[in-house]
């Protein structure tokens, strides 16, 4: 590549965009270690004071537990219904395929606010109270299209011939699934689960409609804490969230590369 002066400017511009994007996030992490009362610059030392305070806060720990349980159940449920659907789209030809695929992806294009309102009104019409179940079904709807997209992309790479070969060689359908299809599918399942877990764990826009004081997730709790103004505690809680939800996809990427190498694919 020719190093024209134009290219230098492109590099500088891109660098500046990165700086712009990450300065606020780095500030959250840095300030969470600032022992000073008001959670603002300048840094006056380095302490885990606010983390210790978080660890002693029962409602925050409760919110964490809620978020973890909700995210895990969402991941299991969404993947359980999403993988078969993705297989149908990748493996079979049937009338109305394109339309149905678009239909299952529309939740992405429907504003989360409307999604939040819609499910809430539905529950109200059914005369059910807001509950943990509402959060769970809401998060399943919210994450399903993303799981479909991710899993479909992975499935395209798995050839049907492997299964056909196994069956030709005398394997039963169950044996074929257990020793051929499932191992090949595992990375897709894994990716789908991590994806829906993270989306569920992070979501705030729709969740604020569905959550109650008893069923708070961490982002909802942060929203409630913000009412008073930003505090070092919020920065610390934000940092814990960032570390958790950022390390998950990075780990997933690493593991799926290991997987791929292990399969020799």
């Amino acid at each position: 590549m020719k190093l024209t002066s134009g290219w230098t400017w492109i590099k500088i511009y891109t660098l500046l965009i990165y700086v712009w994007m990450f300065t606020p996030i780095v500030a959250v992490v840095l300030l969470s270690f600032n022992p000073q009362q008001f959670g603002s610059f300048p840094m006056e030392g380095f302490s885990f004071r606010w983390y210790a305070k978080l660890a002693g806060n029962a409602t925050i720990l409760g919110a964490f537990k809620n978020s973890l349980v909700l995210g895990s159940l969402t991941a299991v449920l969404t993947t359980a219904i999403g993988i078969p659907a993705a297989m149908a789209f990748v493996r079979y030809q049937f009338p109305g395929k394109e339309t149905l695929n678009t239909l299952l992806l529309t939740p992405i294009m429907i504003p989360e606010v409307v999604l939040g309102v819609a499910l809430l009104i539905f529950i109200r019409w059914l005369q059910q109270p807001k509950s943990f179940a509402l959060l769970l079904i809401g998060h399943v709807v919210l994450t399903l299209p993303y799981v479909l997209l991710v899993v479909q992309a992975r499935l395209v790479g798995i050839k049907k011939e492997y299964e056909e070969a196994a069956q030709t060689l005398g394997a039963s359908p169950f044996q074929t699934f257990r020793s051929i299809t499932f191992p090949l599918l595992a990375p897709a399942i894994f990716a789908g689960m991590l994806f829906s877990f993270t989306i569920s764990f992070d979501d705030v826009t729709a969740t604020l409609f569905w959550a109650t004081a008893q069923n708070q997730t961490v982002p909802v709790k942060i929203f409630g804490m913000l009412r008073n103004s930003i505090s070092p505690e919020i920065n610390a809680l934000g940092t814990v969230m960032i570390v958790l939800t950022v390390s998950i996809p990075l780990l997933a990427g690493y593991l799926s590369r290991r997987f791929a190498r292990g399969n020799g694919a």
């Binding site: 994007m21 500030a27 979501d203 930003i230 920065n235 960032i242 990075l250």
Partner: peptide
């Protein structure tokens, strides 16, 4: 990967992080 990282950070954290930058006692 870096440019995709923000996707994995909760929207509420990304939003409130600007208070640390733009606030009266911000950066």
């Amino acid at each position: 990967i870096l440019i995709m990282l923000p996707f994995w950070i909760s929207f509420i954290i990304r939003t409130l992080s600007w208070i640390n930058i733009l606030g009266d006692t911000g950066l």
